[in-house]
Protein backbone atom coordinates (compact mmCIF):
# COMPACT_ATOMS: atom_id res chain seq x y z
CA UNK A 1 0.00 0.00 0.00
CA UNK A 2 1.72 3.11 -1.19
CA UNK A 3 1.85 5.99 1.27
CA UNK A 4 -0.60 8.75 0.54
CA UNK A 5 -2.73 6.47 -1.64
CA UNK A 6 -5.92 8.21 -0.52
CA UNK A 7 -8.19 7.65 -3.57
CA UNK A 8 -7.63 3.94 -3.23
CA UNK A 9 -9.01 4.03 0.32
CA UNK A 10 -11.67 6.65 -0.34
CA UNK A 11 -13.44 4.66 -3.07
CA UNK A 12 -13.88 1.71 -0.72
CA UNK A 13 -15.44 3.77 2.12
CA UNK A 14 -18.99 2.40 1.66
CA UNK A 15 -17.69 -1.16 1.96
CA UNK A 16 -15.21 -0.50 4.76
CA UNK A 17 -17.52 1.67 6.90
CA UNK A 18 -20.88 0.05 6.26
CA UNK A 19 -20.33 -3.41 4.76
CA UNK A 20 -22.11 -2.50 1.54
CA UNK A 21 -22.19 -5.58 -0.68
CA UNK A 22 -24.46 -6.57 -3.52
CA UNK A 23 -26.82 -9.30 -4.59
CA UNK A 24 -27.28 -11.01 -7.92
CA UNK A 25 -30.74 -10.27 -9.31
CA UNK A 26 -30.70 -13.58 -11.11
CA UNK A 27 -29.62 -16.19 -8.51
CA UNK A 28 -29.85 -14.05 -5.32
CA UNK A 29 -26.31 -14.90 -4.25
CA UNK A 30 -24.80 -12.16 -2.06
CA UNK A 31 -21.32 -10.72 -2.57
CA UNK A 32 -18.97 -8.75 -0.39
CA UNK A 33 -17.15 -6.72 -1.55
CA UNK A 34 -19.65 -6.01 -4.32
CA UNK A 35 -18.90 -7.53 -7.72
CA UNK A 36 -19.44 -6.15 -11.21
CA UNK A 37 -21.37 -9.25 -12.14
CA UNK A 38 -22.26 -12.61 -10.63
CA UNK A 39 -19.48 -15.16 -11.36
CA UNK A 40 -22.13 -17.89 -11.67
CA UNK A 41 -24.81 -16.08 -13.69
CA UNK A 42 -22.42 -13.85 -15.67
CA UNK A 43 -24.41 -12.38 -18.60
CA UNK A 44 -27.76 -12.92 -16.86
CA UNK A 45 -26.62 -10.83 -13.90
CA UNK A 46 -25.43 -7.84 -15.91
CA UNK A 47 -27.28 -4.73 -14.80
CA UNK A 48 -29.11 -6.74 -12.15
CA UNK A 49 -26.63 -6.51 -9.27
CA UNK A 50 -28.50 -4.86 -6.38
CA UNK A 51 -26.81 -2.93 -3.57
CA UNK A 52 -27.20 -4.65 -0.22
CA UNK A 53 -26.06 -3.58 3.25
CA UNK A 54 -24.89 -6.53 5.33
CA UNK A 55 -25.86 -6.71 8.98
CA UNK A 56 -22.34 -7.36 10.22
CA UNK A 57 -23.03 -10.46 12.27
CA UNK A 58 -21.37 -13.79 11.73
CA UNK A 59 -19.20 -16.61 12.98
CA UNK A 60 -15.44 -17.14 13.22
CA UNK A 61 -14.34 -19.86 10.76
CA UNK A 62 -10.67 -19.70 11.66
CA UNK A 63 -8.15 -17.32 13.19
CA UNK A 64 -4.52 -16.58 13.92
CA UNK A 65 -2.79 -14.31 16.41
CA UNK A 66 -0.40 -11.97 14.63
CA UNK A 67 2.86 -11.36 16.51
CA UNK A 68 4.97 -10.03 13.62
CA UNK A 69 3.13 -7.31 11.76
CA UNK A 70 3.94 -4.66 9.18
CA UNK A 71 5.09 -1.35 10.64
CA UNK A 72 1.70 0.35 10.58
CA UNK A 73 0.13 -2.50 12.60
CA UNK A 74 3.01 -2.92 15.07
CA UNK A 75 1.46 -0.96 17.93
CA UNK A 76 -1.55 -3.31 17.86
CA UNK A 77 0.44 -6.57 18.18
CA UNK A 78 -0.32 -9.20 19.24
CA UNK A 79 -3.76 -9.10 17.63
CA UNK A 80 -6.20 -11.78 16.43
CA UNK A 81 -7.13 -11.93 12.77
CA UNK A 82 -9.97 -14.13 11.58
CA UNK A 83 -12.07 -15.27 8.67
CA UNK A 84 -15.66 -14.50 9.51
CA UNK A 85 -18.63 -16.03 7.73
CA UNK A 86 -21.32 -13.36 7.71
CA UNK A 87 -24.90 -14.53 8.23
CA UNK A 88 -25.81 -13.43 4.69
CA UNK A 89 -23.12 -15.75 3.26
CA UNK A 90 -20.03 -13.74 2.29
CA UNK A 91 -16.79 -14.27 4.20
CA UNK A 92 -14.38 -11.53 5.25
CA UNK A 93 -10.94 -11.28 6.83
CA UNK A 94 -10.80 -8.91 9.79
CA UNK A 95 -9.39 -8.34 13.25
CA UNK A 96 -11.21 -9.48 16.38
CA UNK A 97 -11.24 -6.89 19.17
CA UNK A 98 -12.68 -6.35 22.64
CA UNK A 99 -11.74 -9.77 23.97
CA UNK A 100 -8.72 -11.56 25.37
CA UNK A 101 -6.48 -13.43 22.92
CA UNK A 102 -7.43 -16.74 24.55
CA UNK A 103 -11.13 -16.03 24.08
CA UNK A 104 -10.97 -16.17 20.29
CA UNK A 105 -12.40 -19.51 19.17
CA UNK A 106 -13.65 -21.14 16.00
CA UNK A 107 -17.43 -20.89 15.97
CA UNK A 108 -17.67 -17.78 18.17
CA UNK A 109 -20.40 -15.30 17.21
CA UNK A 110 -19.17 -11.83 16.36
CA UNK A 111 -20.52 -8.50 15.19
CA UNK A 112 -18.89 -5.68 13.31
CA UNK A 113 -17.57 -2.58 15.01
CA UNK A 114 -16.04 0.63 13.66
CA UNK A 115 -12.32 1.00 14.27
CA UNK A 116 -9.16 2.58 13.03
CA UNK A 117 -7.52 -0.03 10.79
CA UNK A 118 -4.18 1.70 10.38
CA UNK A 119 -2.69 5.06 9.63
CA UNK A 120 -0.18 6.37 7.17
CA UNK A 121 2.52 7.31 9.70
CA UNK A 122 2.16 10.46 11.80
CA UNK A 123 1.30 12.78 8.93
CA UNK A 124 -0.68 10.65 6.48
CA UNK A 125 -4.35 9.76 6.38
CA UNK A 126 -6.12 7.57 8.95
CA UNK A 127 -7.94 4.58 7.55
CA UNK A 128 -11.11 3.39 9.27
CA UNK A 129 -13.18 0.28 8.71
CA UNK A 130 -14.68 -2.84 10.20
CA UNK A 131 -13.33 -5.09 12.89
CA UNK A 132 -15.38 -7.63 14.78
CA UNK A 133 -16.12 -8.10 18.48
CA UNK A 134 -17.78 -10.96 20.36
CA UNK A 135 -21.57 -10.81 20.55
CA UNK A 136 -22.52 -10.55 24.20
CA UNK A 137 -24.68 -13.37 25.45
CA UNK A 138 -27.07 -11.73 27.90
Amino acid sequence: MADGAVPRFWREIPQRYNLIGNQCGSCSKIYFPPRESCPYCRRKSMGKMKVLKLKGQGEVLTYSIIYNAPEHFERQTPYPIAIIKLDEGPKVTAQIVDCKLDDVKIGMRVQSTFRKIHEDGYIGAIYYGYKFKPIEVK
Partner: peptide
Protein backbone atom coordinates in the same frame (compact mmCIF):
# COMPACT_ATOMS: atom_id res chain seq x y z
CA UNK B 1 -4.21 -6.07 -0.63
CA UNK B 2 -7.65 -4.45 -0.30
CA UNK B 3 -9.52 -7.14 1.60
CA UNK B 4 -6.87 -9.11 3.49
CA UNK B 5 -3.63 -7.17 3.99
CA UNK B 6 -5.46 -3.85 4.52
CA UNK B 7 -7.10 -5.29 7.63
CA UNK B 8 -3.86 -6.52 9.19
CA UNK B 9 -3.59 -10.01 7.74
CA UNK B 10 0.03 -10.99 7.09
CA UNK B 11 1.34 -13.67 4.76
CA UNK B 12 2.24 -16.06 7.63
CA UNK B 13 -1.04 -15.03 9.28
CA UNK B 14 -3.15 -16.30 6.39
CA UNK B 15 -1.30 -19.64 6.34
CA UNK B 16 -1.63 -19.73 10.12
CA UNK B 17 -5.41 -19.45 9.75
CA UNK B 18 -5.31 -22.54 7.53
CA UNK B 19 -3.26 -24.32 10.20
CA UNK B 20 -5.73 -23.35 12.96
CA UNK B 21 -8.62 -24.75 10.94
Amino acid sequence: QEWEAFFGATFPGIYAMIATR
